[in-house]
């Protein structure tokens, strides 16, 4: 069941569009915000809320990279692997994080603290290499600064 809060927030979004289904992406983001990821049950609940078929909602959910159809950790690390960050050495940043946390791209630490994912260009190229953790942007990364940054997220 969608919570009252989720329903209210989804309703607010549907008001910006001529019909409820247009708020599908917003609804997915709202539910993900509350639950961390989008389960099959969440897809069904959103479908019924927006008067859509389950298949339609899932086709939207699986298209967008920032909708998680699998559980993720408490914190999601998004390492930019696009061109400016490649030139400026994202690969060694990735290797450092991967070694430190013993996870590769697509994996979650056993304690559920971090999920490590690649991300396309973050539009922060003059401060490359960059990454995001949850909603926070971190840039001009060095091996030392990464250690400090990770400590902030428990």
């Amino acid at each position: 069941m969608l919570s009252t809060k989720e329903k209210e927030e989804i309703y607010e979004e549907t008001r910006l569009y001529p019909y409820p289904a247009a708020a599908c992406i917003d609804a997915l983001k709202i539910v993900q915000h509350h639950r961390g990821w989008i389960s099959d049950e969440a897809i069904e609940e959103i479908a019924s809320e927006l008067d859509m078929s389950v298949e339609d909602v899932d086709s939207v959910a699986t298209f967008y990279t920032r909708i998680y159809r699998k559980p993720v950790g408490r914190n999601v690390i998004l390492v930019c692997d696009s061109i400016s960050c490649m030139v400026m050495g994202y690969e060694s940043m990735y290797k450092h994080i991967s070694d430190k946390l013993s996870v590769h791209f697509g994996e979650t630490t056993p304690d559920g603290r971090f999920t490590l994912l690649p991300i396309s260009c973050l539009g922060d190229c003059d401060h490359a290499p960059s990454l995001m953790i949850n909603d926070d942007l971190h840039n001009n990364l060095t091996i030392n600064s990464i250690d400090e940054i990770l400590e902030k997220y428990q």
Partner: peptide, 23 residues
């Protein structure tokens, strides 16, 4: 409207579909 990822949504007709809540 805050997006949910995908470069192609910068293409104006893909952006319009995305704003309509579609792929």
């Amino acid at each position: 409207h805050s997006s949910a990822g995908r470069y192609i949504c910068g293409e104006e007709t893909a952006l319009i579909n995305s704003l309509e809540g579609k792929r």
